[in-house]
Design a protein around this nucleic acid. Sequence first.
DNA 1: ATCATAGTTCGACACACGTCGAACTTCCGG
DNA 2: CCGGAAGTTCGACGTGTGTCGAACTATGAT
Lengths: 102, 102
Amino acid sequence: MRAISHPIREQLSLVGVLHALSDPVRLEIVRSLADEAELSCGKLAVAVSKSTLSHHLKVLRDAGLTQTRAVGVHRFVSLRAGDIEARFPGLLDCVLEHSAST
Amino acid sequence: MRAISHPIREQLSLVGVLHALSDPVRLEIVRSLADEAELSCGKLAVAVSKSTLSHHLKVLRDAGLTQTRAVGVHRFVSLRAGDIEARFPGLLDCVLEHSAST
DNA sequence: ATCATAGTTCGACACACGTCGAACTTCCGG
DNA sequence: CCGGAAGTTCGACGTGTGTCGAACTATGAT
């Protein structure tokens, strides 16, 4: 079983988080995840190929914005809302609020 | 006299703004500008060459975060705080607040 | 008209990034 | 044990990015 590593809360950097959110595809993924507790990869409705989606999910995970857990062949992704809020209070909510109107 | 073009407020995009802020040098520039009404290029204390600074200032200007006015040979740069706040309320303050503790 | 200054632009370099198809790995049902 | 599915990784491609020195442009002082 493949272990999925995540950065710990203290490793989240502002620049890293802003960079991860500065791509339209990743911002769309984060918005989808904000509306659900978690989603499987297949349920994420983004218009890119599977390998591109994997790439973007890796960027989000490495930035510390999301966490991934495996169940059989499925990968479930969720926002690390608690960690992000603890680390940068208000930032994610602010970004999500403004992304809705873009 | 060289006219310095800026995007209008409506042209500011969330992704563009986040991208502009997702670089450590530009974030440092924005932080410096947040503390002063405006600064000349030479007063911006960032550890990069003049051409790199020009590059970053262009990125910030193109993203709509800053405005530049020329006075003789000097260029004075300031945050478009009003436009940013109107366009994405709370976002810049939030980012600046968190960048201070990085 | 010349010179110094501030800042920009050019062009080059090395690396980063987003994209994808093919191949791969892991899991589970039959 | 085999095949299908989910998702990852590899490698390639084209473009983007941050860096800088050299050359350039505009301004103002002389």
